[in-house]
Amino acid sequence: MTPILKSKIIEVCDKKIAAKGEGVGVSFYAFFKNKNDDPNLLMEAAEWWIRTHQLDHFEKAMKVKTLVQAGG
């Protein structure tokens, strides 16, 4: 995972957790604007989320953050 994506995922998870608590869920779309302005980063996130970890559409932000921090 590139440092840019790792940083973005952790930042978004932290904001969501701070706003809604540790039980809040996220999808990989949460890390992108509605406008597809970086298709390579979107595909990297999708590959990591779907193929590498076989995560459901929505996962707990804490779980995603932990996976990323562990080098997942």
Rank of each mutant, 00 (worst) to 15 (best):
residue 72 G to M: 11
residue 15 K to Q: 07
residue 1 M to A: 10
residue 56 D to R: 07
residue 28 F to T: 08
residue 21 G to K: 08
residue 16 K to I: 04
residue 55 L to P: 03
residue 44 E to M: 13
residue 12 V to G: 00
residue 10 I to H: 01
residue 36 N to H: 08
residue 27 S to K: 09
residue 2 T to A: 04
residue 54 Q to V: 03
residue 27 S to Y: 00
residue 11 E to C: 03
residue 66 T to L: 05
residue 42 L to D: 06
residue 64 V to R: 00
residue 55 L to N: 05
residue 33 K to H: 11
residue 43 M to I: 10
residue 50 I to A: 06
residue 5 L to W: 00
residue 40 N to V: 14
residue 72 G to Q: 13
residue 13 C to N: 01
residue 17 I to V: 08
residue 29 Y to F: 07
residue 55 L to G: 00
residue 37 D to T: 15
residue 56 D to Q: 09
residue 25 G to T: 15
residue 3 P to L: 14
residue 54 Q to F: 01
residue 50 I to G: 03
residue 61 A to Q: 05
residue 31 F to Y: 07
residue 56 D to P: 07
residue 28 F to H: 13
residue 61 A to F: 04
residue 32 F to A: 05
residue 54 Q to I: 01
residue 2 T to G: 08
residue 58 F to M: 08
residue 49 W to R: 06
residue 68 V to S: 00
residue 58 F to G: 00
residue 37 D to W: 12
residue 63 K to Y: 09
residue 50 I to D: 09
residue 57 H to N: 11
residue 5 L to C: 09
residue 18 A to V: 04
residue 44 E to V: 03
residue 61 A to I: 04
residue 19 A to P: 07
residue 16 K to L: 12
residue 32 F to S: 08
residue 4 I to E: 14
residue 2 T to D: 11
residue 57 H to Q: 14
residue 1 M to I: 13
residue 25 G to N: 13
residue 69 Q to E: 15
residue 2 T to H: 08
residue 31 F to I: 00
residue 72 G to R: 09
residue 69 Q to F: 07
residue 48 W to M: 06
residue 53 H to Y: 03
residue 28 F to Q: 12
residue 72 G to A: 15
residue 43 M to Q: 14
residue 34 N to R: 14
residue 36 N to G: 01
residue 66 T to I: 03
residue 71 G to F: 06
residue 33 K to C: 11
residue 12 V to E: 05
residue 9 I to G: 03
residue 52 T to R: 11
residue 72 G to C: 10
residue 9 I to T: 05
residue 47 E to V: 14
residue 17 I to D: 03
residue 14 D to C: 02
residue 10 I to V: 15
residue 46 A to S: 14
residue 15 K to I: 00
residue 21 G to I: 10
residue 8 K to P: 06
residue 61 A to E: 01
residue 4 I to H: 12
residue 20 K to W: 11
residue 11 E to Y: 10
residue 12 V to F: 00
residue 65 K to S: 05
residue 69 Q to T: 06
residue 68 V to D: 01
residue 23 G to C: 10
residue 66 T to H: 03
residue 32 F to K: 03
residue 53 H to T: 08
residue 68 V to K: 01
residue 29 Y to M: 05
